[in-house]
């Protein structure tokens, strides 16, 4: 009998745009003056257009695209931080996302305080919290540093800590943005082991990265974003083939433009 596979993430015609606020648009005074002078303030906007894709259990999606293509916006949308303006986005299951190194931690609080806070945020019981703390201690090997405020940490230490917390409790859906590429070899090796066990649980992962190597290692599907729209979604090899072709073209036109000048 064929196993019925439940879709975990369904994006159907999802669009969103948001105005990027500049310093002057953040001021009520300026807005009032503009209103009096009948001046319309122009706002640039960042957006995603008609995104369609479906991820099933066990899918690990690599999101690629040049800077500003909308990768981070898409991950924030999947994490529930942004809301789509139109279309349907269905996310089934618990989501844990590691979008930036700040990762919902207070810089003035100690490592331990931040771990506890993150656990309470997920409504964990005291027992579960103790377990998470042990696991994080083990994974990060930060020792006494965990009792110090995290603004005394190096970025590598913060990465270890935030990655450890994000993956301590195995979520249904894990969302990672770039950050993991910034770790050193030793960290990547440890992160590897953890991700492999994660893959064994056949959960869903979405990972944005510029590194082909990292995406090939962890993902089985790829989604290529360009100007906020999906250029390709599907199998990895073909995806990278087209993406590389595209990059080569950009480089060529760029060289030509310089030549003209």
């Amino acid at each position: 009998m064929e196993k019925i596979v439940m879709p975990k993430i369904v994006a159907h015609d999802v669009s969103m745009s948001y105005p990027l606020l500049t310093d002057s648009s953040l001021s009520l005074k300026k807005k009032f003056i503009n209103f009096l002078c009948r001046k319309k303030s122009t706002l640039s906007s960042s957006s995603l257009n008609n995104i369609n894709f479906t991820l099933y259990e066990g899918d690990r999606l690599g999101v690629i695209g040049i800077n500003g293509a909308g990768k981070s916006t898409l991950l924030k949308l999947l994490s529930g931080i942004y809301t789509p303006n139109s279309g349907d986005l269905i996310v089934n299951g618990s989501v844990s996302s590691l979008l930036s190194l700040q990762y919902g931690m207070k810089p003035w609080a100690t490592g331990y305080e931040n771990i506890r806070l993150r656990c309470l945020l997920n409504n964990l019981t005291d027992e579960q919290i103790e377990k998470v703390i042990k696991e994080v201690e083990e994974f990060t090997e930060l020792g006494d540093a965990l009792a110090k405020p995290i603004n005394t940490y190096s970025s590598g230490m913060i990465l270890r800590l935030s990655f450890a917390i994000a993956t301590a409790q195995i979520p249904d859906i894990l969302i990672l943005d770039e950050v993991i590429g910034t770790g050193d070899e030793y960290f990547l090796d440890k992160a590897n082991t953890r991700m492999e066990s994660f893959i064994d649980h056949s959960n869903v992962m979405v990972l944005a990265s510029h590194s082909e190597q990292i995406i090939r290692k962890f993902c089985n599907k790829v989604l290529w974003l360009e100007h906020g729209a999906v250029k390709y979604f599907g199998e990895i090899n073909k995806g990278f083939e087209e993406y590389k072709h595209f990059i080569e073209n950009i480089k060529l036109t760029h060289k030509k433009n310089i030549g003209i000048k």
Partner: peptide, 9 residues
């Protein structure tokens, strides 16, 4: 900010 920007709460 650190929370609003990173987790859905």
């Amino acid at each position: 900010k650190e929370f609003i920007d990173n987790v859905s709460l």
